[in-house]
Amino acid sequence: MTYVDLKDIRVSYDGKNNILKDLNLSIEKGELVSLLGPSGCGKTTTLRVIAGLIEPNDGAFVVDNKNLTRVPVHKRNFGMVFQSYALFPHLTVKENIGFGLKLRKEDKTTMNQKIQDILDVTGLGELGDRYPKQLSGGQRQRVALARALVIEPKLLLLDEPLSNLDAKLRVQMRIEIKRIQQKLGITSVFVTHDQEECFSISDRVAVMNNGVIEQFDKPEEIYNRPKTEFVARFIGFENFINLTKQGEQTYTTSEGHVLKTGHRWEDGKQVATIRPDDIVILPNGAEQRTNVIPGKVVVRTFLGKSYQYEVDTTVGKILVNGSKETAYPSGEELLLYFPEEKLILV
């Protein structure tokens, strides 16, 4: 059942350019949804609309069947974690966490109990009396999370909360966030530009571009079946081939190569895409057949787990990853095989 609903949200700062255009998003109770996209795509703006920090020009924002569009931020009871953590520098960890509880006029005993509980949940245990500047980045992150969670918010909003941490800690913290989020069963919206982070943590992902949601799906779906060229490019599909329809599931390239895909043609789609990892390099002299395009290696780069080749073919430059065992020199003629099920139409 839909818990959070954004309906036809439009945001414009100057009245001419829309930051968000008729954005629709439905989130279910207990779900962790990510907003993924490059900078400037509107993901942070969407989060700020949800938080109430930005009032949309048009549209409605509904939580639990209550229209909150015009409800001011301080009456929404949403927890928010900022990219900069935004801890109050003049307060201790406990005072930071207790800030929201104090405003709710909780009595002292309940308040202290709640603070202690959340310190335990977030693994901050003994750090309650420290000031933010005495904490490491990861600890600050936990305090920010604890402060947002202790008010028992209806929604947890996270604005790129991991981008200021180093790589190792980032992985640790995202597992931590997921653990706490599941434990408390709190509906959450997570903003990020990092696809790995986003896929690992989310129940569903909304990929955004230019103020529009391009695709809203489970991470696996988005990874395997991007619906638009933008989404495909954003999540690592590097090769795009223009096609003409031949028969059901059979297409030809401009040069007459026949390509088959396991996917059905939909109106308006005439581009096939495939990840460099999914293309197979056939041994020289292999027989020509469908889904094979010949080409010549232009550049070879070493990626660590494999070699990457830029191959010049009749359908343009194709990026292919090949095994470490064989290193083809530039100038080498290769046959590239595009497996039917890996070739996606966008």
């Binding site: 301080h74 900022f82 109050f88 929201g100 709710r104």
Partner: peptide
């Protein structure tokens, strides 16, 4: 960092 002010709003503070 004015986000500390925004955080205070989200926690229930008036402006």
């Amino acid at each position: 960092d004015f986000s500390i002010e925004e955080v205070a709003w989200t926690l229930g503070s008036t402006r």
